[in-house]
Nucleic acid binder design. Structure first.
Length: 545
RNA sequence: GCCCUCGUAGCUCAGUUGGAUAGAGCGACCGCCUCCUAAGCGGUAGGCCGCAGGUUCAAUUCCUGCCGAGGGCGCCA
């Protein structure tokens, strides 16, 4: 059993010994300050009023009861501050952590069954196939994929989906723009004027259907850059396919039957105001064409049948859309909570602190492929996942690519490469790692070693929280901290060499195996690679920039 | 006007669903390579947590109002 659970059980026992009812959840936390012990609980503060006592007195009573119990790892207890109870543990508990980690390996450590294998569809990017992905899409792409990875590790059965808006007004305008370009005519006023239109048009022959050709061209450009970012979708869901299957018309009549729509001014409207929307929304325009909304509702109905949880990743410019989509779902009898919309705030590109609006190459919006090419896939992913999606992001291309010492991705990858490098050396000098049961873990007494074990123990909690909050940046934050712990250890503690006792060397080597597992899991959840080695580019070091 | 997100060190950002002395990276300053990679390590300086109320044993965290920034408010997507 996890130490934390066993401590909670002790507390419950002590409470009932005092004739008190335990709260449903006993709050046990790691104190920020190491001098406050390994674990701390606030039950004394929470229950004091109910017990008719003051917090410190209650805590003191609890401590004396707890001291009567025997416990494998607890070495000392104290009442502190306004009425906290601090638990000080023997180092033995940390050794158990290392054994657990190494036995589980990177496949199974920090994996949970919380999701119960239930099905969740993560829909993200879903950019129109009318042009290349731009830098802003990168954030949603990396976020969505990382969320999917985190949910998979938390026991969910995850599908990554890309909704392809392959018909409708925008597609027609895109096709018309390509067509005009190919046949040397002027691009329509309300058409697409990006530089890529001209580029793509040169690849297209005059007698091809510009719509289907253009869509394929756009999708292949999407797939290429996403693949560079280590992102693969399970399905690309076509809007056109729903016209063909009749599911859009079916959705429309379902809405009618549910009395959720009405006709007015020649258009069909969704009664979204009934569910808190500012105004009702058009489903079918007076010219008979669907708005974006209706096919998307049909798509969501399809997803609701296929999965228990729907997670959508949308850009901040689409947030107004949430209410109407939930309104549609709810009016058809589904619980709106089954759709979770995660909104990513804007990305502002910079180069050396200067705002970058346009691409140097095309003079147009900066394409995602340019970002990936300039900074590299790992650095791009890590940077996009550096912070919470709730805050606008400043993405400095120079900082992320050139000035490597300021770039956190290298710090984390370097930690991994250092261990690999040490292991390679160990192999070369004939160091033979002992089998696990023969390693004397009590050799690990250095604070650097214990800090590493503590961090390693946190990983399952971090993953759990990242999953609960759909927040990959929790992983990023942990990784940076953990890498820092490793660099500190690496600096102070040697593993190989004549001056290190063999038993200590063995224990430290095993510790490094555990650390590798932690780093591998963290980097995998972010979708960045774990390099075997890294060598500094002298040209960059000596150069001006 | 209404809706969403944000406001924390000079800069970029964390802050474990209300806890003890608010953290990290970068930048600045001072140190550390005879040694498994110095893309590293250690130290110093730097804070009315936007402002004002409220809730309570306890508020950066929850509620209300205000100020400021970004985004949205189409029979576009």
């Amino acid at each position: 059993m996890d130490v934390r659970e066993s401590i909670k059980n002790l507390i419950r026992e002590a409470l009932s010994g005092l004739g008190l009812e335990s709260p449903t959840e006993i709050h046990l936390e790691r104190p920020a300050n190491v001098e406050h012990g390994d674990w701390s609980t606030n039950v004394g503060l929470v229950l004091a009023k109910k017990a008719g006592s003051n917090p410190r007195d209650l805590a003191t009573q609890l401590v004396s009861t707890l001291e009567g119990f025997s416990s494998e790892h607890v070495s000392r207890l104290e009442v502190a501050g306004p009425g906290f109870i601090n638990f000080y543990l023997n180092k033995t508990w940390l050794y158990d952590v290392l054994l657990e980690v190494v036995n589980a390996g990177s496949q199974d450590w920090a994996r949970s069954e919380e999701g119960g294998n239930s099905k969740v569809i993560v829909e993200f990017v879903s950019a129109n196939p009318t042009g290349p992905l731009h830098a802003g899409h990168g954030r949603g792409a990396c976020y969505g994929d990382s969320v999917a990875r985190i949910l998979e590790r938390s026991g969910y059965s995850v599908a990554r989906e890309f909704y392809v808006n392959d018909r409708g007004t925008q597609m027609n305008l895109f096709a018309a723009s390509l067509d005009a370009c190919v046949s040397g005519k002027d691009i329509p006023e309300d058409g697409y004027h990006g530089a890529y239109i001209k580029e793509w048009a040169t690849e297209m022959s005059v007698d091809t259907d510009p719509l289907s050709w253009g869509m394929q061209r756009a999708l292949s450009s999407h797939k290429e850059v996403l693949s560079d970012l280590n992102i693969e979708f399970d399905s690309w869901f076509s809007e056109t396919s729903m016209v063909e299957s009749g599911s859009i018309e079916q959705t429309l009549s379902m809405l009618e039957k549910a009395n959720a729509s009405y006709e007015e001014d020649g258009a069909i409207w969704l009664k979204s105001t009934k569910y808190g929307d500012d105004k009702d929304r058009v489903l079918v325009k007076s010219d008979g064409e669907y708005t974006y909304l209706l096919p998307d509702v049909a798509y969501h109905l399809d997803k609701l049948v296929r999965a228990e949880r729907l997670i959508n990743v949308w850009g901040a410019d689409h947030h107004g859309y949430i209410t109407r989509m939930k309104a549609a779902i709810e009016s058809l009898g589904y619980e709106p909570e089954r759709l979770e919309v995660e909104v990513t705030q804007m990305v502002n590109l910079q180069r050396s602190g200067e705002e970058v609006k346009l691409s140097k190459r095309t003079g147009d919006i900066v394409e995602l492929s340019e970002v990936v090419k300039e900074v590299g896939s790992d650095a791009a992913r890590f940077t996009y996942l550096l912070q919470s999606i709730d805050t606008a992001q400043t993405f400095d291309l120079d900082l992320v690519s050139k000035r490597v010492n300021e770039n956190p991705i290298f710090y984390v990858q370097y930690a991994y490469a250092r261990i690999r490098s040490m292991m390679k050396k160990a192999d070369q000098i004939g160091f033979i790692p002992s089998p696990l049961p023969e390693v004397d873990l009590s050799q690990l007494q250095h604070s650097r070693e214990l800090i590493l074990l503590r961090s390693l123990h946190e990983l399952p909690d971090v993953v759990e929280r990242a999953s609960r909050e759909l927040a990959p940046h929790q992983i990023t934050t942990w990784l940076r901290e953990f890498a820092s712990d490793l660099h500190g250890f690496y600096h102070d503690c040697r593993i190989l060499g004549d001056d290190v006792e063999p038993s200590l060397a063995q224990a430290r080597f095993l510790l490094m195996r555990g650390v590798l597992i932690g780093l591998e899991i963290g980097m995998d959840l972010l979708g960045v690679s774990a390099p075997e080695e890294m060598w500094r580019d002298e040209l960059i070091e000596d150069g001006e920039n």
